[in-house]
Write a protein that binds this DNA or RNA. Structure first.
Lengths: 209, 209
DNA sequence: GTCTATATTTTGATAGAC
DNA sequence: GTCTATCAAAATATAGAC
């Protein structure tokens, strides 16, 4: 079966295209640049995908599918502090380990997000609705400060993805890109920040009488 | 003096270009689209600016200059809570009132930020260094929780600008773009969030004895 | 399936009339 | 200063040999 070759080549093209699209955008990227990075002639790229835009769309969908699988979420039975900590740490790590994915998504948002409309209004919205319900329960139970669920999620997404999307700004301000130790320190600092904002200070035990 | 006409036309071109570049990017935008939006023939655009990229660079510099003037910053004599509140509220409002400026900046960051290198490593870095010093003083005085200044600023920038840069995501999750009242509510919620994370709870007055 | 050569389109930029 | 007509370059996409 030569389906092997087909899948291998598709994967190589997608990997190359992710880098090029993330840095140059859909219009700025040339199929030639993708071909060069993938190490194959330009025609092969179009043989596998038809048009440049089809590669772009395939990549976007791969990114959101990957995110959706990686961050299954949290439920009302979880401990709020632990759930938030896990989610934030993993999102920061993803920004440092796969920045191109985050940048690709950011570019699509800046362009209006039309190509992800189904995802945004379907899967993502449902995920957010469920998580918002959990957060509201936690708040009602006094296990969490009275945060607005949407604002919390927007803030977490923005604060974690900024390390991928605005990397040049981060590097300029710090005097260089953060090495792995600095990455962990930034992640830790962000987690502590969010937990202070979300988790009410432990009550001095008021014993029932 | 016909310098009037020149300035008027330059301003019209810049206003049109900001919209087009923000939505399409440098390469995605065509001079024709800018000309159409500005209501003048394509040649006039190039007569005033020479090249498409010069318009783009001029816009970027105008944006950072405008931001720099709008957010002069805060000093050690200020009240931390009030200073943060003012800064965050104004940045959120800017995201809603001039989203194209934020998106333009975001695009440049995604592309590597080379055209803003001088700004990032000069003016911005100096501004951050000064503000970081203030924050460290506040922390040392116990007027602020032990936040990492860089992480705090990155988080504020990301959380405020997300309402411009990721507007399609915000609209999809909320079921529509936020109207002015909802914008204020989101700003308020974000401010409260950041203050909970930054400002230590008022100590139960420990009178000196 | 793979690759070279080429057709077609788009678009940034310019020349030159008014 | 303004605008029309045009050039030249670049890049997407395809045709067709291998």
């Amino acid at each position: 079966m030569a389906g092997q070759i087909r899948r291998r080549n598709r994967a190589r093209i997608l990997a190359a295209a992710e880098q090029v699209f993330a840095e140059m955008g859909l219009e700025g990227a040339t199929t030639q640049a993708i071909a060069d990075l993938a190490g194959m002639p330009k025609s092969n790229i179009l043989y596998y995908f038809g048009t440049k835009e089809q590669i772009y769309v395939a990549l976007l969908q791969e990114v959101v599918r990957f995110w959706h699988e990686s961050f299954s979420g949290f439920g009302p039975e979880d401990d709020p502090a632990l759930a938030l900590e896990t989610y934030v740490i993993e999102k920061v790590r993803m920004s440092f380990s796969r920045p191109a994915a985050s940048r690709l998504f950011a570019r699509e948002m800046l362009s209006g997000g039309h190509r992800l409309r189904n995802y945004l209004e379907g899967e993502l919205r449902q995920w957010v609705d469920e998580r918002s319900q959990v957060i509201r329960e936690w708040v009602a139970q006094g296990r969490m400060a009275p945060v607005d669920p949407h604002q919390l999620l927007f803030t977490i997404w923005a604060a974690t993805q900024t390390y991928a999307d605005f990397a040049p700004q981060v590097a300029a301000v710090r005097g260089g890109p953060p090495d792995p130790a600095a990455q962990e320190a930034l992640a830790r600092s962000l987690v502590d920040f969010i937990l202070r904002a979300c988790i009410p200070p432990a009550q001095p035990a008021t014993p029932p009488r």
